[in-house]
Design a protein around this nucleic acid. Structure first.
Lengths: 162, 162
DNA sequence: TCCAACTTAATTGTGTGCAATCTTTATGGA
DNA sequence: TCCATAAAGATTGCACACAATTAAGTTGGA
């Protein structure tokens, strides 16, 4: 199964062609897992009339209250190019209000409507089903989060240092 | 299944509101990590003129040789709605050929052109940089792949059983 | 043999995700 | 004060991702 640390090959000694395959597994397995999650949520959220990304935005609003678009973007690593149309759809659906801030007219504050706030009750049952569907133990979930968080941070820095 | 150490809470005992937060972390961290990977690849593959998804398709072709669209789709968990336009772009770029199979006229076989096959040489240097940028050890990468693979499989089954 | 059911791709429509650009508003230094 | 610069969103353009539908080809059973 897992080989002892000393038996692990030195990364520098692994040939390029081998890495091209290993690499395939890494980026691909992440890509596939993310989309598998999306597929599960798509069904679970259908009744609520939310997409996966819209659900993430609603989570931020449910947890943190009224937010500027900028703040939501920082929390979710999304820019206005993605958020602007998404928030307009949530507004059309009657779940949020968009209002120019009075202190800073550049910024737009997103606020839940009563309907948007009320939707939280119906969303409460979703996560348990998702966790069950992953088939992962609580330990594995926590470990996964930790590794993914580090990975995201490292990749972000690598891109910035580009 | 691993039995949780006594210190870990029983999942059934965790309240819904808490799971709504934990859940946030799981789906979100995966979403963020996947996009961080995409961001890194976008830059790394720019010289090759490939997008992240096009790179995945090229990996399949480099490894497995000529493939029907169907087979590529199964390998990458993508359907023709995604692959058809993507493959046409690869064809326009001169990297692949698309030909109706003679045995089964329904299927379209994708084959690398000389240029497409030659691109592999230039792609060989990409994975090492990516692995370095993740900041993960080889063990962690392997562990991550294993967990993600199980997760994808479990979520896929859960959706199918829907 | 013939046709209904299935299979394979392509197409259509919606919703991200992101780079690049534009508009409006704020800020800070000469 | 005035203006260059920066910041916040919105918009545009391109490329996935996926559900739903369509078109063309295959297969199997009555």
């Amino acid at each position: 199964m897992t080989t002892a640390p000393s038996a692990l090959p030195d990364l520098a000694a692994v040939p390029d062609a081998e890495l091209l395959r290993l690499d395939h597994q890494v980026c691909f397995s992440l890509h596939a897992a993310s989309r598998a999650f999306g597929g599960y949520y798509r069904r679970a959220l259908k009744d609520l009339g939310l997409t996966y990304s819209q659900y993430l935005v609603m989570l931020v609003l449910w947890e943190q209250g009224p937010q500027a678009v900028k703040a939501i973007g920082e929390r979710l690593h999304l820019d206005s190019g993605t958020l602007s149309p998404l928030l307009k759809r949530l507004e059309s659906a009657g779940l949020v209000r968009r209002e120019r801030s009075r202190e800073d007219e550049r910024s737009v504050v997103i606020e839940l409507t009563d309907e948007g706030a009320g939707l939280r009750e119906r969303a409460l049952s979703v996560p348990r089903g998702v966790l069950a569907a992953t088939g992962l133990s609580l330990e594995e979930v926590l470990g996964l989060q930790e590794v993914l968080g580090r990975l995201t941070g490292a990749l972000g820095e690598a891109v910035d240092a580009d």
